[in-house]
Write a protein that binds this DNA or RNA. Sequence first.
RNA 1: GCUCUCGUAGCUCAAAUGGAUAGAGCAACAGACUUCUAAUCUGUAGGUUAUAGGUUCGAGUCCUAUCGAGAGCGCCA
Length: 547
Amino acid sequence: MHQFLELENNIKNELLLNNIDENIEIRISNFPNYDFQIDNLVKHQNHPEIEKIVISISKIIENDDSITNYQITDKYFINLEINIESFIKVFENIKNIIRSQSSKKIILDYGGPNIGKPLHVGHLRSLNIGRSLSKINQLAGNKVLTDIHMGDWGMPIGQIIGYIEKFDIELGNIDINDLEEIYPKAAKLYGEDKVFKDHAQLINKKLNTNNKNLLKKWEKIKRISVESIKEILHLLNHTFDLWMGESDVNYLIPEMIKRLDKDGKISIDEGAYVSNLESDPKILITKSDGSYLYLTTDLATVSNRIEKYDFDKTLYIVDKRQKLHFDQLFKSLDYFGFAEREYEHIAFGTINDLNGNPYKTRQGDTKKLIDLFEETCLYIENINPEIEDKTIKILANTVLTFSDLITNRMTDYKFDLDKFTNITGKTGIYVQYSLVRAKKLVQNSSINKNDLQITVSELDDTDIKLLKSFSKFEYLFTKALVNSEPHHLADYLYELSNEFNTMYQGERILENENLSIKYNKLKISYLFIEFSTLLMESLGLTPVDKM
RNA sequence: GCUCUCGUAGCUCAAAUGGAUAGAGCAACAGACUUCUAAUCUGUAGGUUAUAGGUUCGAGUCCUAUCGAGAGCGCCA
């Protein structure tokens, strides 16, 4: 870690002298009285020079400013207690500490709304995780490009246009509500009516070959849909750099197929193109009527991105049921000889209802995000009717984001609005409240942050606990970044908020006549505000000023 | 049928990706408000990590088997 750089290097070098090549990992400790631990030595407990090594390492730790107390156990665990005084500088400089020297260009592919379908609960996690990962990567110094990657092509479009043609619906008059009604009906008909199915498939095929008349209809439908998507995303505070869709790469596909065929990478099987790569199941590249599939457009999308944006890495934030698809995509990229880049499927679990079934409305439809948002606003209004409209909206977004990001992304979790809007407990409301409290406190004190010093001898247990917790930031941030797991930061935000509240509640800070104590607590509150705000930023939350 | 996840406190979830004594929140119980925002805080109780073996200094985490739950599997995206 950056904050222990010197210590890590010194220990690493000492171990190298004894022919031990270890990447020194300083981890958070749960042991009472210690803050961090180093476990690298444990596995070398039978090393012939182990006692000598222990002595040298002890010296290194004793000479290190950042450590005030340490212990090397009989099993060779190294326990460290940090020196708070030396860490104040680290805390004040936390934004630079977490910024990495090497900057990568990363594309985040998430959201993935479909034309004709409203944004629903199924989109919530992709949006939340994607936004958070984009913030985290930016804070880490990476260059981030977000792409909403719309599902604006393929069979659903064929179904919608087919339906409109069949029932002679006037395109000029339809709005988003009509469209959202048409799609489920069209999809149903597609499954039931063979004639309609053939017609829709024909439309899809014609679109793939750029039929002008159909393209015009498609454009109109897309425009209505995108307007509505933008509206709801604005409400949920999501923005994207790129609004690319599957349709944008359609023109690249014929050329791509031709090349793959020529290179002997794909061949015809029962009329469809199949990858020649050995795999089970075989990888289907096109349909037997020559039209394109999910994988076809995704391949073309990568090819387009390589050419236009020259990225180092792409993260696909898509639910875990699509694992096979991404396995196939990544294998194919390699086999087909696409330029070498990093790709990762950031998979996540489903949102279920309290019985563990997929989250639906009472009528059995998927729940729309707009309805969920409004429902959440109502809950918040009920807590405090005096609250401003603007604040209600921010808090509703906080609830929908925090409760989503607090669980490990791979877990299927149960959505419970009662619980998530609960005023007690590990909720978005709680972390916002804590920050509001802290801001009000320092505001009432009328003392500037820079005029405050920490007097270590006057710190009490609640101060020390919070200060020491600040030192975990780099560790948890790195973990969230490396593993693309925002939940570490959500949990940490709660922990800091809770520790702040404990300190705050301990005594009436502004009335304390011992100025050292008062200034300590105010300084710590300022630091808390900074850390909490930074954590909220990395989770995609907007802090409120009052509530 | 094949493949892949998962099973942790009454409930909802964590667990530093193999580290020491498995942690939080809710619910329960007992306490603290003439308040710098009590939308808060303090304390108590709650566990043979589904079961049985194995690997090693060390296992909730890795391997094997069994039981249970879920998901995916060539013409949807």
